[in-house]
Design a protein around this nucleic acid. Structure first.
Lengths: 173, 173
DNA sequence: ATCTGCTTCCAGTATTTACTGAAAGTTCAT
DNA sequence: ATGAACTTTCAGTAAATACTGGAAGCAGAT
């Protein structure tokens, strides 16, 4: 196919763009999502400069977002022998990506939320007025739900792919 | 308890503030999340003016976000007989809240993402180069995963609370 | 037809968030 | 110790997003 290179490039661009939009909707910075998409579909590791060129972004921007992706565990730094430059490569296994995102969001967002719910619950403990009791009850239910969901997340995230599939099958039975 | 009113107010403020921050991290506008928190913990229905006053926001802002919450199915409009004003009340059942958020996010965000993945998959169908094949394979895996997760979401969201709990118990067995 | 009480829209503005580019920092080779 | 190759930081700026307040729209009462 004479233009496979071109059309592959186009498909990849499309993917990068859309992954960026999607990330933004989920509270992830667009550039970070784009770099992630780029690396997920890169046939080989990429340097900061290659990322900069491809997405037409500044060094600072590329650097910040690459480091963030590393801290999320979604990409890793690779060094080539004889070269001082750092290269990056993305985790490509979809289940592994899911697990890492789940783990990080839990740590960064769920845990603090639970903390707040527990505070609000404690602050309204033992109130006698109907309003106070209703508030306490609402906090209690939210806390229950969120901590339950959090434990579910842990459980799923700690599973191997195969086991998760099996369980899901049971779920659909 | 002589200051129960005050401390309840404080606890509620804390909850509203933190729910707002949390919402923002999940890609939901802060004010929208705050109004939601406010109504979830309101002992009674509230009017637009009450919301405006409590959160110290403009009419336009309150209006937009109240309507958005209605479109998410998280609050509903209530009218009192003899009054022309609209009042709002929040869904308070945690499971129901979860179901509605899941359903909307699926519709608004997952479906379009799947669409893109399918496009990219189709665009790289039958490519011969290793890069093309790798890309196609990656899109395929992502599409599988996302559509699977989406079906799981449907399944859970269509369950009654009691049944979900039972299933979850089985899950932890 | 006009007024009143309320809802909706939207142009302009403020706030937040993201990005740039240049300078400073680091590390290793010589 | 100097310099080359690369990474990191950050003040300033640009872009995106959210908010305000007034004006327009709408519907029921008079």
């Amino acid at each position: 196919m004479i233009d496979e290179g071109v059309s592959l490039g186009e498909a990849r661009d499309e993917f990068v763009t859309q992954w960026g939009i999607m990330g933004a909707q989920w509270g992830i910075n667009r550039t970070m999502a784009q770099i992630h998409a780029l690396l997920m579909t890169a046939p080989d590791v990429m340097s900061t400069d290659e990322v900069m060129e491809t997405l037409e972004i500044s060094r600072g921007n590329a650097h910040t977002n690459l480091k963030d992706l590393v801290s999320w565990g979604l990409i890793r730094i690779v060094t080539k022998k004889g070269e001082r430059k750092e290269f990056f490569e993305a985790e490509k296994d979809v289940w592994e990506i899911f697990r890492r995102v789940a783990r990080e969001r839990k740590r960064r967002e769920i845990e603090p939320a639970l903390e707040t719910l527990r505070n609000c619950k404690a602050a309204s403990e033992g109130m006698k007025s109907p309003e106070g009791r209703a508030f306490h009850e609402q906090m209690d239910q939210l806390e229950d739900f969120v901590s339950f969901a959090s434990r579910m997340g842990d459980r799923v995230a700690s599973m191997q792919h195969g086991k998760a599939i099996k369980l899901a099958m049971k779920f659909f039975s």
